[in-house]
């Protein structure tokens, strides 16, 4: 196992870089971070739409979330591979394709996490803000979102772990991230699949487990802060949509 690591370690870490394009674990991380950053605004928009006072917007967002939840990510990746060139007119790289698919996917899942955080805020927050004459948008921007986004930091980190794991599907359409590296090492060695995939699993495990632990630490911080800052009872069905405007 150590000889595999010493011979192919660099390939697993950075792919062909610097002789070729960056790959391996570095690409896995790059794709994950890009997907999270791009999915975030989409997710916030989806969460706001899901709690919108306008029924048509709520329904459209619910349709999007249900559709995404209803099909495998792999299928979304294949769709992206097919649809993106039709939209942009050029063939996208597998990396871009997977990032786009993950944005569509996480827009729904991260969006639901943010929606849960929005709805968990006491209804009194909206009441108080609207009572001061603040508009729906100002209430969202200044009062609701800052609190909700802080409260859902742990679930955002969990979504990041999911994204990291999901980038492993990128090898199927040819992105040379860490799973791709492992597959090509396995193809070269032929007789040592257990060691190769054990190493691959270990790499993901170390990365994702540390991130999960970190998210638990953050969760405790958030919980502590929340129990300190609010002595308001949590009402069960608070919603921005409930205040007549």
């Amino acid at each position: 196992m150590t000889e595999i690591l010493s011979q192919y370690g660099l390939l697993l870490l950075v792919g062909q870089f610097p002789d070729g394009p960056i790959g391996g674990l570095a690409l896995t991380l790059l794709m994950s971070v890009a997907a999270l950053l791009l999915a975030f605004p989409v997710a916030v928009a989806v969460a706001i739409a899901r709690t919108s006072p306008i029924p048509a917007i709520r329904r459209a967002a619910a349709f999007y979330v249900t559709a995404v939840r209803g099909i495998p990510l792999l299928l979304i990746i294949f769709w992206a591979f097919f649809v993106l060139p039709l939209v942009t007119g050029v063939t996208s790289s597998p990396e871009i394709t997977v990032i786009c698919a993950l944005v569509v996917y996480e827009g729904a899942y991260l969006g639901e996490a943010i929606r849960a955080a929005l709805e968990a805020l006491p209804k009194g927050q909206t009441d108080a803000s609207r009572s001061l004459g603040m508009s729906y948008t100002a209430t969202l921007r200044k009062v609701i979102l800052p609190q909700a986004l802080f409260n859902c930091l742990p679930s955002m980190m969990n979504q990041f772990v999911l994204i990291v794991k999901n980038t492993s599907l990128a090898y199927i359409i040819g992105a040379q991230e860490v799973t791709f590296s492992a597959n090509s090492i396995n193809a070269q060695l032929l007789t040592r699949p257990f060691e190769v995939y054990f190493i691959l699993a270990a790499i993901y495990f170390i990365l994702c487990y540390s991130l999960s632990r970190l998210s638990r630490v953050v969760e405790n911080r958030v919980l502590r802060k929340r129990s300190r800052v609010t002595n308001q009872p949590i009402t069960e069905t608070p919603s921005l949509a409930r205040v007549p405007s």
Partner: peptide
Amino acid sequence: NRLRSGIGFVFQQFNLFPHLSAKDNVAL
């Protein structure tokens, strides 16, 4: 919004904005 901005309302549960300091709550 104009109507509400001209009527002060004080709640049983205070409903202060927990992410803002006292003076930010007042100035928001």
